[in-house]
Amino acid sequence: MTAQTGGADTYYVPEQSRLAICLATSVAVLILGAAIGLNQMTFGSGDANWTMLWLGLLGFVVILAVWFRQTIVENRAGMNSAQLKHSYALGMQWFIFSEVMFFACFFGVLFYVRNLAGPWLGGEGAKLMTNEVLWPAFDFSWPMQTTPQEAVGGVADQIPANTGTFVGPKESVSWSGIPLINTILLLTSSVTCHFAHVALKADKRSAFNLWLGLTLILGFTFVGFQAYEYYEAYNHLGLTLEAGIYGSTFFILTGFHGFHVCMGAIMLSVQWLRSTVGGHFTPDDQFGFEASSWYWHFVDVVWVGLFLFVYIL
């Protein structure tokens, strides 16, 4: 046997693969579709056409699924050496690190707005003339319910740089309702996910399925609540993307988090199906599950940050 054809003792260097080029192509279609659609939506006169976006997305999802399937098949065929498995683990860990930085960016934005830009607009600190000259009636508080623009009388007021239309929310989201429930849900799910891991290591298949199933239920319930919260925000609180910087930061942070919860939940669902239907995983070979669970714990930690900085403080 040569290194290329594998065997658990040597490093497996895969054959040529069509997956990457197909995936890259579908991603290209996806982003072109998105860009064309968005530009039609914002700058065009007629309705935006999203066909290309959906096609690209479909291709993306299908090829990704095929790709993952192939790696699973390879692993189950015993082609992955311990070293390769470690490569996969490293890959996932550093990927999660990059995700941490992605969220760090938006937390940084929130911090900057709340501690620097906001107070300056409100006439505190180093740039107090900003308030005096441009936004005289604006008081800064968080959550920002009156935007600087509203404070000076709306778009009509012809001070420089008064562009766009930003109407602050009627109310902000309180931490004690859905967010608190969601915190409990997500924290619990992290625990159940851990129990699932323990069960798997102890080779208790049905306990694993149960704990993981529970994790999934908690996760999807979280997403449901979050969707409801958005519905409320848009329909009753007047909290929208256009509601000034409070809305902007609120939605970008919770939105990307929610999106990541969905991804995590889908990943875990696949693992659950692999276990229940396919009988995959053994006590010492369970990378698919482990990687998904790391991701899940990461999403959970991010939520704790959100709960603190977006909702409570």
Binding site: A117, P148, F166, L241, G244, Y246, S248
Partner: peptide
């Protein structure tokens, strides 16, 4: 650009310098 947020627009409480 496309969704009306105000990260970089002071009128909505953001900041171009951000």
């Amino acid at each position: 650009i496309h969704f009306g947020t105000s990260f970089f627009n002071a009128a909505g409480g953001g900041d171009p310098v951000l």
